[in-house]
Simulated assay, not measured.
Amino acid sequence: MNPVVRIGRIDYLNVWPVYYGFDLMGIPHGMTLHTAAPAELNGMLEEGLLDISAISAFAYAKNHKDWMLVPDLGIGCDGRVMSVLLVSTCPLEALNGAALGLSRESASAASLLRFFFWKRGLACMLDTRRVRSPEDLEGLTGGLVIGDAALCGQWREKFPYVYDLAELWKKDTGLPFVFGLWAVRREAVLQRPDALGQALSFLLMSKATGMKAMERICQRAAVEKGLAPETVKDYFTCLDYGLPPSHIRGLVHYFHCMEKMGFIDGAPEPVFLNSHAPGLAAMNFSDSERPVIPMQKCLSGARYQEKAAAGL
């Protein structure tokens, strides 16, 4: 049994507020921090190389029997997201048969793009690859670009059609979209509840600290990423780092869409870890307004929504 709690961090600007406490105060004793693209973190958590990590929503749907979610911690948006883009030389409706490059870095974004093609009856040739600059899509009709590359790249200079996938989802479904979640391996909860509780408490404190320092985070991001300050502020305004009931509804609907497409065997209801679970008393959810119940009675997505709406 590894005594160190291993935590995963996405290597994108969008998680800076969540990990601000780590950046400010350093990594506490008994914890390690591993930074990588979402798809890589998905695999590390699945293989037991991490205990807690930011993960793609799609990865949770595939591994929900082995993972539990941290309440009120996610990366979602109700409309545009600015950092998950389909870029193309022709309109979306004309992409049937087109060859597109598909970023290998996010399972949620890739599955979301496939959903739009499926819904519109489009059959595209998708080549999973590195997509960081327009040159990476040379010879193709377009492709999926995500993360800082989408936010910072000069995509509109080469591609006349640029679609924000979260905005498309909102238009198609009327719902918010949740790209990222934070998950914990169930076996880690059972084997090391005290250490895990301390790590989760620090993670939530880190997020709370970041939420109070957004102006400073925006200033730093503008300098380090070479973006206009107003662009950075606009970007963070798009993002929601909680999981309000509307976002849970969007997440559950996304799971059902993935089930209809045959990508997953059954749409799971999100199950959340609880601060009152045995050994997790050190966790502090004061930043949260969502309900929690004992771990042995894990809260499903549907009941979570009902209780949250009732203010319980």
Score class of each variant (00 low, 15 high):
6 R>K: 14
6 R>G: 04
9 R>L: 12
14 N>D: 15
15 V>E: 06
19 Y>D: 04
21 G>Q: 06
26 G>M: 06
28 P>A: 01
28 P>T: 00
39 A>D: 05
43 G>S: 09
44 M>T: 10
45 L>A: 11
45 L>N: 03
51 D>Q: 00
57 A>M: 13
60 Y>E: 06
60 Y>C: 05
65 K>P: 09
67 W>H: 07
70 V>K: 00
71 P>L: 13
76 G>V: 02
82 M>R: 13
82 M>S: 14
94 A>F: 13
96 N>V: 12
97 G>W: 11
107 A>V: 08
111 S>R: 15
116 F>Q: 01
117 F>W: 07
118 W>F: 15
119 K>R: 10
123 A>T: 14
127 D>K: 13
135 E>I: 12
139 G>K: 07
147 G>V: 07
149 A>C: 12
152 C>F: 00
156 R>W: 15
156 R>Q: 15
157 E>T: 13
158 K>L: 11
159 F>C: 02
160 P>Q: 03
162 V>T: 09
167 E>F: 02
172 D>H: 13
178 V>W: 00
178 V>S: 08
182 W>Q: 00
183 A>F: 08
184 V>W: 02
187 E>L: 10
188 A>H: 01
195 A>G: 13
199 A>K: 02
202 F>T: 04
207 K>D: 00
212 K>M: 13
227 L>Y: 02
228 A>M: 13
234 D>H: 10
234 D>F: 02
238 C>T: 14
240 D>C: 14
240 D>I: 13
242 G>H: 06
243 L>F: 12
252 V>P: 01
252 V>A: 10
252 V>S: 09
252 V>F: 08
255 F>I: 01
258 M>T: 01
260 K>A: 13
261 M>V: 03
262 G>C: 01
263 F>L: 14
269 E>N: 09
276 H>W: 07
276 H>D: 15
280 L>F: 04
283 M>P: 03
288 S>M: 10
292 V>Y: 08
300 S>Q: 14
303 R>F: 11
308 A>M: 06
308 A>R: 04
310 A>S: 10
